[in-house]
Write a protein that binds this DNA or RNA. Structure first.
Lengths: 110, 110
DNA sequence: TATGTTATATCACAAAGTGATATAACATGA
DNA sequence: TCATGTTATATCACTTTGTGATATAACATA
């Protein structure tokens, strides 16, 4: 079971948006909305990454009935990959927070 | 107050290692160790990023007394930047987990 | 004084991300 | 019906970011 980890931020955001069926443009809007505009994925990045995720079979084309919209969704492997990366990211945050806490104590002592 | 966010994973790992004084090689080892080898920063990436962080004043040279080692550390701005990125990353994870939870429910219902 | 480890550094290249732009379907109101 | 705006996908040329390979040297030790 080959792993595509670690996921980059852009890839993570897109995959996190595709836990349920969504078309590309909706992913773009969702990321901008949920991050309050602090992370923006433009069309160039979006469709580049979607193409790559399709090739790696982390997402699939879910529905193409609409003449314009292409709806994608995570595959099982995609979901597992996302879950694994969530775990990695939690460790990351823990690591950073531990360091910052220790530093706060030092500041007070000074 | 210009922001350098969002931080890439590599930059985040390095900055998270520099909440206390550490030299480059130690940062490299620490990241590999705390991630269980799932994220490796080689010397090329390490020193490239350190150079960039110095230029942006997110870290400073803390001590150069040793003939070999160069010890770096986060500046106040660097710490604030790291804190802001931790917050962003928490939202990211929340976003992903909410999506996955919802999906689990759907699977059960089916 | 040879060997391994620690440590910093850079080059040439590869991978990832993006601003600009193109295209077109649909929605709407004038 | 047709101009305007929005939704939507797509790609090109470019920049930014990351890295494998390699070089250099100080120190530890045996």
């Amino acid at each position: 079971m080959k792993s595509f980890e670690p996921l980059t931020d852009s890839v993570f955001y897109i995959m996190a948006s595709l836990t349920e069926p969504r078309h590309g443009y909706a992913v773009m809007s969702l990321v901008e909305e949920t991050t309050g505009g602090s992370f923006v994925i433009g069309p160039a990045s979006l469709y580049t990454i979607i193409k790559k995720l399709l090739k790696e079979q982390l997402i699939v084309l879910h529905d193409e009935s609409d003449s314009r919209r292409k709806v994608y969704m995570l595959t099982d492997v995609g979901r597992q990959t996302l879950e694994a990366d969530i775990a990695r990211r939690k460790v990351m945050i823990e690591m950073a927070e531990k360091g910052l806490e220790r530093r706060e104590v030092c500041d007070e002592e000074h």
